[in-house]
Nucleic acid binder design. Structure first.
Lengths: 204, 204
DNA sequence: TGTACATCAGTGAACGCGCGTTCACTGATGTAC
DNA sequence: TGTACATCAGTGAACGCGCGTTCACTGATGTAC
């Protein structure tokens, strides 16, 4: 990828939705190269607007990257919710399937969009409120206890352990991680085994 | 921290150990600010030498950061080995204690030296050979099987699951991670619970 | 023990780059009357 | 429906910054004879 890009053309003097367009360009940059690649001037260039115009909509660089981070987190949450959940008669198995689907969605997103994934976490931008993906996980764990398959004594701190495992696996799988060179089949196998491991840690 | 620093003074024209000194300065920069903070010019400044002189010892910037990364990985490995292991009569419990000590060392290092920890992983520098810390983990798992406390059927892929959990927990604990704002006691509790979770996943 | 000289380790000025940001500005929009 | 005008969204040139890197150089070292 060459540095910089040809400026886009615009027909009207006023853009109409510049703030949004700049964030979208920032998201695209993040997809291509992670947090480092979010460059205010380049985002403006891609939208076809002067760099200065960004300051009509964002206080400064951090304000823009913060907006990009919010979108990245949202995309992660959506990926987690989009994962299909196989149906089970047993309430316990159903709850486990739901939890597993969240993990699969998380890992799928991290692998498909490593740049955005990094932005959602690594970016030292204004840290948003408690994340929605965390809430999804907490709900799934509550369900596990409610269904009776998980001992309520194990509930405290469970989100930390589960999140750590899935998040850590994502880190190992993407970019230059130790598992990033594995073929598709081997990666899938590692993921399955690790999710089994998580299940065992919760309901032993 | 202000940008740049006063250059150090030197008595002799020849430094004598400049390559080493530059890497050490790089490590110090990494400790202070992670991968981003490793700046060739600043390292030279701190050693009290012109920026140009670095090119007598390193091909380019990546060569220098690669050397810093190696030291960071080594420091992590040493922290893992430095953790004391409580003695047990039972071979299985002993093996478990050894594994847990590795995890504790890993987490202690990540929390004490988040900048170096990031460099050991995140840096897109020449990725070194298979890491020594990984070998330590593999050995500990082998011991677990040898002692009879862990089912050998669970051995394949176990390093991935364990490493992911501990690594992920480290990520959540340091810098802007979701658990970074926790007090010391709560952090320790989360760590203990997560290590229990790991144990359960291996020997259920 | 001296001295010539190749070699090596350091210097300082300069280059080009791309960034975030400021400035005074101009073109378009919409509201009051 | 028309027009004055405040307001808002965009512009382009310029600034200062610090970076990695190149260049021709100079000072120190050590080896051959």
């Amino acid at each position: 990828m060459t540095r910089g890009s040809a400026p886009a053309r615009r027909t009207t003097y006023h853009h109409g939705d510049l703030a949004n367009a700049l964030v979208e360009a920032g998201v695209e940059l993040a997809r291509e190269g992670g947090p480092q690649a979010i460059v205010l001037r380049e985002a403006a260039r891609r939208v076809g607007v002067s760099a200065t115009s960004a300051y009509r909509h964002f206080a400064d660089y951090d304000d823009l990257t913060g907006a990009v981070k919010v979108r990245a987190q949202r995309a992660l949450t959506e990926a987690m919710m989009a994962e299909s959940v196989p149906a089970h008669d047993d309430a316990g198995r159903q709850a486990l399937a739901r939890l597993r689907a969240l993990g699969c969605g998380y890992l799928r997103f991290a692998q498909a969009e490593p740049g955005l994934f990094r932005v959602a976490f690594n970016l030292d931008a204004p840290s948003s409120k408690t994340s929605e993906s965390f809430a999804l996980l907490a709900d799934a764990l509550d369900e596990l206890v409610a269904s009776g398959i998980m001992d309520s004594a194990r509930r405290p701190g469970a989100e930390t352990a589960v999140w750590a495992t899935v998040h850590g696996l994502a880190e190992l799988l993407i970019d230059g991680g130790p598992l990033s060179r594995l073929g598709k089949a081997k990666r899938a196998a590692e993921i399955e085994r690790t999710l089994d491991f998580v299940t065992r840690g919760l309901v032993s």
